[in-house]
């Protein structure tokens, strides 16, 4: 009798899991990222390439507001290189007489928004708002694999699909109709470091860069994690030995 009750309960839970498996969309493209795993680290050269892609392709529509130029030293650039890069941007300012002027960017500035406001951004993109990219890989299921897939997910719509005006078909985007046109194709950029710029390579580089932008403390987290775990492990072992020693007194009695 008890067994029957338990078996019924097991069947009940199993049907739940089966229902869960039924509803998935197309599976995302997956990649081995250098930052995966317990000791994962960013590949600095890859991040530099990703920065180049962001600046040359995405920055005309997407802001990256939580990233400051000074943060770019983490990609292996020197302070002077960062200063020079920041100076390529212009920011609004007010001079001592109170007039509107523009000034050159400094390392303390953040990447600027390409649009003066959201309405302008929508108007320039058929009504779709290009979201800020600084947290993109943490704000979507699949993280960097999602961005990587999205970049390569453009294809002709299956026959019978009505595309709305200004929309593009992307198999990984929820609902498949996306306001962003296809951005990445082979040789879209010419990499400063000579890496061959296949569409796949570019997609991987921008995704890795955006993951750094979203989680800049990832390497520190992994490294601190190891030190903490070793400490806690030693503490646990010592506490266990101590506990055994203390409890052994009871048996002697």
């Amino acid at each position: 009798m008890k067994k029957i009750v338990l078996a019924a309960a097991a069947a009940f839970t199993l049907t739940s899991t089966a229902a869960l498996a039924a509803e998935a969309g197309p599976e995302l493209l997956k990649r081995q990222w250098t930052f995966d795993g317990a000791t994962g680290k960013f590949d600095k050269l890859q991040l530099q390439r990703g920065l180049q892609v962001y600046r040359e392709v995405c920055a005309s529509c997407h802001s990256l507001k939580y990233v400051a130029f000074r943060n770019l030293t983490a990609l292996g650039y020197s302070e002077d290189q960062v200063k020079a890069l920041a100076a390529e941007y212009e920011f609004k300012a007010i001079d001592e007489e109170g007039s509107d002027v523009t000034r050159k960017g400094t390392p303390a500035d953040h990447f600027p928004n390409p649009y003066p406001n959201d309405n302008f951004a929508r108007a320039s993109n058929n009504g779709a708002l290009p979201p800020d990219l600084s947290l993109m890989t943490k704000a979507r299921v699949g993280g960097p694999n999602y961005v990587y897939s999205l970049m390569q997910g453009y294809e002709d719509p299956p026959p019978g699909t009505e595309l709305l005006a200004g929309m593009n078909y992307n198999k990984y985007f929820p609902g498949h109709q996306i306001g962003m046109p296809k951005q990445i194709s082979d040789d879209q950029v010419t990499y400063a470091d000579g890496t061959k710029a296949s569409a796949e390579q570019i997609s991987a580089d921008i995704s890795a860069f955006l993951h750094w932008a979203a989680e800049p403390k990832l390497e520190a987290r992994h490294a601190t994690g190891f030190r903490v775990m070793i400490y806690v492990l030693i503490f646990t072992i010592l506490a266990y030995l101590l506990k055994r020693k203390i409890w052994a007194r009871l048996e002697k009695k």
Partner: peptide, 21 residues
């Protein structure tokens, strides 16, 4: 106290594994 200390260490292994990874 000694048993709780051991339990705490064991528990922290899981907690920190999630916090860091």
């Amino acid at each position: 106290t000694s048993k709780d200390a051991f339990g705490l260490g064991f528990f922290m292994l899981f907690y920190f594994a999630v916090v860091f990874w």
